[in-house]
Simulated assay, not measured.
Amino acid sequence: MLEHQKIFRIFQLLARLRTPLGCTKADIKEDFEVSERTVERYLSLLRNIGFHVESHRGRYRIRSLNEKRLQVEDLITFTLEEAQLIKTALENQQVKHPLQQSLMSKLYAMAEMPELTETIFDQSVSNNISLLYHAMKHKTQVVLHNYQSLNSGTVRDRLIEPIRMYRYNRYLAAWEVEDGMLKEFKTERIEKVELTETPIRYSASYGNYGVDIFGMTGEKSTIATLQLTRRAFLLLSEEFPGAEKHLTQKNNAYLLKVPVYKWEGIGRFVLGLPGEITIIAPDAFKTYVKNKAGAAGI
């Protein structure tokens, strides 16, 4: 993994751990597609830096930074060597240097500000996202250079037709020309986006496909109806942009009525908030969640 991707991943993890309910190890494993041992290393690293990583009933959360570990004057200044290291990292996207740990500590500590953890993107990632939006606007194909796929274990170029970005631009739904199928790509795994002048050609193949607010794709959607507590409502609005238009409020409860293509996406959300969500319909989704909960021992 490139250095800029590692930094971006840590900021993503900090953002997750700073949410009101935090997250479980299983959440981290699934979201970042890493082993439990890697999750343990991430949590240990954050503790060593000075973050208070708390655990309650299997959920991990960061409340504050140990101020004795990093003083304010250590956070707001950089040495000339560290400044040069930042410049080198941005220009080359890959760097190894003895001062890296010092720099990383300050960057992580700065992430104590919630707004920073929500908006920090590496320069190259931001540029890639901008190019993808340009291609979608002008309906042209693009090449994803050196895309790193964990599913196939390959790193190669992909010619795609971008369809939609979601989850704060972390994911891209696109038609891959070579394989002739709809796929999901993580923007942080794209080394470089190259625009082409070739108009999209395969919209007839995926024109009937949709992407729900949970990132699942398909041709035929099913309406799922849930009753949410205020806490669940706030987390849904925070994690899944666009959910608001599917919500109505009645007294202190919130009703979500949303089209979904697969149970996996909405199921992860429901299972992550036990006692906060009541499934009203359909029965097939109730059965899915019941079976998953039983298998997980929830």
Score class of each variant (00 low, 15 high):
1 M>S: 11
3 E>F: 07
4 H>T: 14
8 F>Q: 11
8 F>P: 00
13 L>K: 13
17 L>A: 08
22 G>A: 13
27 D>N: 13
27 D>C: 08
34 V>C: 10
34 V>R: 01
35 S>V: 07
37 R>F: 04
42 Y>G: 00
44 S>P: 00
46 L>S: 04
47 R>P: 04
47 R>D: 03
48 N>G: 10
51 F>H: 01
51 F>P: 01
51 F>M: 10
52 H>F: 09
55 S>H: 09
55 S>V: 13
57 R>T: 07
59 R>G: 03
59 R>E: 08
61 R>T: 04
63 R>L: 11
63 R>A: 11
63 R>T: 13
64 S>C: 07
65 L>A: 12
65 L>C: 08
67 E>F: 02
69 R>C: 10
69 R>N: 13
69 R>L: 14
73 E>D: 14
78 F>Y: 08
79 T>Y: 03
83 A>R: 12
85 L>Y: 06
86 I>S: 07
88 T>P: 01
89 A>Y: 06
91 E>G: 12
95 V>C: 02
98 P>Q: 02
107 L>I: 15
107 L>H: 05
112 E>P: 02
116 L>E: 00
116 L>G: 02
119 T>Q: 14
119 T>R: 15
124 S>I: 11
125 V>K: 12
127 N>Q: 13
128 N>A: 10
129 I>T: 06
134 H>Y: 13
136 M>E: 08
140 T>C: 03
142 V>K: 04
144 L>S: 03
146 N>K: 12
151 N>C: 05
154 T>D: 12
157 D>A: 13
157 D>T: 09
160 I>P: 06
162 P>E: 07
163 I>A: 07
166 Y>C: 10
167 R>V: 05
172 L>I: 12
175 W>Q: 04
178 E>P: 06
179 D>V: 14
182 L>A: 14
184 E>Y: 02
185 F>K: 02
190 I>S: 05
192 K>P: 04
198 T>P: 01
202 Y>W: 15
207 G>H: 08
209 Y>W: 15
211 V>F: 03
213 I>C: 01
214 F>I: 03
218 G>A: 09
218 G>L: 11
219 E>V: 13
223 I>T: 15
224 A>Q: 06
228 L>S: 06
239 E>G: 03
239 E>Y: 09
249 Q>L: 12
249 Q>M: 14
250 K>E: 15
254 Y>P: 04
254 Y>D: 06
254 Y>I: 09
255 L>P: 05
258 V>S: 00
259 P>Q: 00
261 Y>Q: 11
261 Y>F: 15
262 K>T: 14
263 W>A: 12
265 G>N: 09
267 G>L: 02
268 R>Q: 12
270 V>F: 01
270 V>Y: 01
270 V>C: 05
272 G>F: 08
272 G>V: 07
273 L>I: 05
275 G>V: 05
275 G>Q: 02
278 T>Y: 13
278 T>W: 13
278 T>M: 11
279 I>F: 01
280 I>D: 07
280 I>V: 15
282 P>C: 02
284 A>N: 01
291 N>C: 00
294 G>P: 00
296 A>P: 00
297 G>K: 10
298 I>H: 08
